[in-house]
Structure formats: structure tokens, C-alpha cells
Design a protein around this nucleic acid. Structure first.
Lengths: 163, 163
DNA sequence: CAATAGTTGACTAAATTACTCGGAATTAGG
DNA sequence: CCTAATTCCGAGTAATTTAGTCAACTATTG
């Protein structure tokens, strides 16, 4: 289980898709424009998402992508696993390194840590993200002049980085 | 909050250190040998860990590294943050991209996801990892043929997290 | 048939990872 | 003082990943 910007792009794109698919297939060009992700990169990501059966495609004019399952049935973990490389069972396991106990122990400790994080992200569905998003949307509507939102966003991000 | 093999190396090395520092400073050469991580790479990682004040160094013969705090006061999140690059506040925040609501929303949604994972890893201390490790050691002594050790470890960690 | 979109594969620049090398500076022990 | 052990430090580097471009192709609508 790796957490990188690649996974974040995929989650962002899937969220955009989830928020719009009620109006029929969503084009990558649209997602690209709204989310500031290059079209070609999205093509790569959605190729993987499609092969992982998280989305379905409709070709031709009026086509685009739709979710292959309901928003409740797609988790953040699903998305990240779909776009991340297999990561292989580094060192121990694949190799012959696992001779002495200590090496194996630390490795499989990390493995279980990974598993815990994975479990955690498995429980976060696209549905819950969509709900959060919509809740925020209405709060914006309530006070259109709230320009501190941008600052708040920067702060939140800066905080998470510093943290 | 990124989760990469780099962070895993650092956690592994810190765990090795935690398990041995009772016998005085631990050399990087020793960690390198036991954990199969190159000495020079460890030097880089421990440079960051030292600057983050997670470890202290003793130079000269008989020198090495010791933990700068107790095992209970060092979390997995501390270690990962220390060795990972700041990652910068991609897109939103740094740039001027954060114009329309949607872009900012998805970004700051990801940010909160990051924060949640960070909180989670903040609660896993080196001490709890060391305990798990020692528990496994004794169970290995009790029954050398126990190959279910991996499963047991996962359970133990899942348990300590839930607690 | 023409335009719209997805599909695929090859390719690339930049960043990151993991590692090497060569040397400093520091200190314990002889 | 000398030497060996060790941390410290910076430059360099190969492999991988990220993020993106480009071009050709297929399917579908109108």
C-alpha cells in the first residue's frame, strides 16, 4: 500500500466522475479541465481503472466513463490499488534474504502496518467522499463571499505537510 | 503523508535501533548488515532523523546512534515525516489554481484524508512495535516451527491499533 | 462519411529512490 | 601522537516512477 500523488490524482478524478455521472458518461477531457490533470495522464489512469473494473467506458460521441459499481461499493483503497504498481513483496518473501529472524520480523511488521492502512482505506467509500463534498458545497452556497476558503485550504494542506 | 519504501526503510532501521540501544550506541554498519540496507543510504536517512531530533549520534570508536526520546515518544508518523520530502502543497495552495470551488474541494478532501492517515500513524509508537517484536521473539522460542507467525503479528498490530 | 471519444503503445523529461565514492571531522585506545 | 572506528557531508549515478506528449487506431453517433 503506497500513498503517492498518483493515487491522489486517481481518487480526485474518480470523485469528479462520481459527482457528475448522473448526467451520463463523463469525458476525460472534462475531468482534465476541471481537475487540472493532463488528458493523456488521465487516459493512462483510466486504462488501469477500467481494467480493474472500477469504471466502464462508452465510446463515440456522447461517450465517456461511468462507474462500474455504485459509489458505496468503491473504496479509496480500490482506486489506489488499481493505479499503483504491484509494489512487489520487497526483499523478504520474493528473495532468499529471509534467513535470520530479525530481518523477517521487521519486514512482516511493515507488512501488517500496510495491511492496517489498507483496511482503513477500504472502509472509506466514494459515497462518503461525495457526501462530504456535497455538504461542503451547500456551506459555500450559504456564504458565497467566503474567500477565506482558499486560505483555509492552503493552511490545511500546509499543515498536513508539516505534520 | 506519503507511504513509500523509503519510509519503510527508516521505520525498519529505527526499530532495529530501538531493539538494541540498551547495549549502547548502535552503529549504522550493524543496522546495514542486519537489515540489508546500504550503509550510505542509512547515512542519508539518519542524517534526516538526527536533524528531526529523533536520534542522537556519538562519534568515534564505540559510537553510533541512540534514540533521542523514549520509544513511547516516537511514532511511525514522526519517522516517515522526518525522511520524506515535504512533498509541497501540490497544485492548490502553492499555485493560483484554486479558483473554482471544485478544484479546491477535491484537494482539501485529499488533505483531510492525509490528515486522518497521519493521525492514525501518530498513534503507533516505536514502543508498541518493539513490544510486538518481542512477543514474537518469545513465541518463536516457544515453538520454533510456528509458521503462522505472520498472521499472529497482523492480529497483534490490528489489536494494538484498535486499543 | 465526418466528427467525437475511447484505446493503445511508444516515447520523454523531470523527480525520486537507492546507492556509490571520496573524503572530512571526531574520538577512543594504544 | 597515531590509528582505527565512526559519524558527517556532498557530489555523482543508475534505476524507477511520475507526469506528460504524440500518433495511430477503433467504435459510435448523426
Amino acid at each position: 500500500m503506497r500513498l503517492t500523488t498518483k493515487g491522489r490524482f486517481a481518487v480526485t478524478a474518480m470523485l469528479d466522475l462520481a459527482l457528475r455521472e448522473s448526467g451520463g458518461p463523463v469525458t476525460l477531457a472534462g475531468i482534465s479541465e476541471r481537475q487540472g490533470i493532463s488528458l493523456s495522464y488521465l487516459e493512462q489512469l483510466f486504462g488501469k481503472l477500467r481494467r480493474a473494473q472500477l469504471v466502464e467506458s462508452v465510446r463515440g460521441p456522447g461517450g465517456g466513463y461511468t462507474l462500474a459499481r455504485t459509489v458505496a461499493e468503491i473504496s479509496v483503497a480500490d482506486i489506489i490499488v488499481a493505479v499503483d504498481e504491484p509494489v512487489d513483496a520487497t526483499q523478504c518473501g520474493g528473495r532468499e534474504n529471509c534467513h535470520d529472524n530479525h530481518r523477517c520480523m521487521t519486514h512482516d511488521l511493515w507488512t501488517s502496518l500496510n495491511a492496517t492502512i489498507f483496511d482503513y482505506l477500504s472502509k472509506i467509500s466514494l459515497a462518503s467522499l461525495v457526501d462530504n463534498q456535497k455538504a461542503k458545497d451547500t456551506s459555500v452556497v450559504q456564504d458565497q463571499r467566503t474567500l477565506r476558503r482558499t486560505a483555509a485550504c492552503s493552511d490545511a494542506i500546509a499543515g498536513s505537510n508539516a505534520a
